[in-house]
Design a protein around this nucleic acid. Structure first.
Ligand SMILES: [Mn+2]
Ligand SMILES: [Mn+2]
Ligand SMILES: [Zn+2]
Ligand SMILES: [Zn+2]
Lengths: 146, 146
DNA sequence: ACCTAATTGCAATATTGTTGCATTTATTCC
DNA sequence: GGAATAAATGCAACAATATTGCAATTAGGT
């Protein structure tokens, strides 16, 4: 929850400001990728008015601290749910409900590293997202409009 | 080469126009991800003036036909070098020289599918990019400025 | 060479992202 | 609790990127 991220912020010498906590709350509550303007809009609807510049700067910081991630497929931001995990953080993205689930797996990394090495490529890290259907959505009517 | 993509265009009922061929040439020649405005600029410097709207529309089409891909990490566009390959097209991105190498591997897909299935996720396709150093750049001085 | 649908260019607009600087705020120390 | 102060935010202006409708052009078929 938010309290964890607040501790991380302070441990790294950053202030736990009201705007930062608000953004954390939204990311935690809405478990789907959100753009900076999405976040601003959601908070605005709740009577909390943040400047978009502030939202951008907060998301930048969160990504640097690995408190959040920028999704590759959509460019939206999600809260990191693997705070303590070293190595590559990855995602499964439900094409129906839009939910994302974060995971990490050393086995996948090793397989990918081995594969790349055979082609003479020295891997630093892996970006990957699986697109498909989450367990709740599999075998149901589609929800997402796009 | 370009001629292949031209055939694909025509086979699908699209015209092989001068702007489309120019964009194909650039993507084929510069084997690094390019933004729409990058492409426009490169062509402009060669005396070929395309409207940016045209470049956007061409890249949209190319992506729909899998003649090109939009890179996840950078948002830039590259020419697909696996024209005939079914399944997931993936990339290794050199962090030094910026070169990209496209590949596909059924084994990786299967491993990922199995992993996801264990978590109740039904995978449709995989997006993935490996970041690291290509064989030429490994053990050399850095080139890229950023 | 002509016809026609497809494609492009243009102009206007919308959206997204960035920068410098004045103002405010969270933390430290008393 | 009340300063002091460095960090963070808001504001304004701007820059870059992306989208739309419509008129002009062009590629491919006859
Ligand atoms: Mn994470
Ligand atoms: Mn490809
Ligand atoms: Zn779902
Ligand atoms: Zn390289």
């Amino acid at each position: 929850m938010v309290q964890n991220s607040v501790r991380t912020l302070q441990a790294q010498g950053y202030k736990a400001t009201k705007p930062r906590k608000l953004v954390l709350e939204v990311l935690e509550e809405i478990e789907r990728p959100l753009s900076p303007y999405d976040i601003q809009g959601i908070l605005h609807a709740r009577g909390k008015h943040l400047n978009h510049v502030t939202v951008y700067r907060i998301l930048d910081l969160f990504c640097r601290l690995n408190l959040a991630h920028k999704m590759l497929s959509s460019g939206g931001f999600v809260k990191c749910s693997l705070d303590a995990v070293e190595g590559c953080h990855r995602f499964m993205v439900c094409q129906d409900c839009g939910a994302i689930q974060e995971f990490a797996d050393e086995g996948l990394c090793q397989g990918e590293n081995r594969f790349a090495r055979n082609l003479g490529f020295h891997t630093e890290h892996h970006l990957s997202e699986f697109a498909g259907l989450c367990s709740r959505c599999y075998g149901r009517q589609p929800q997402l409009t796009e």
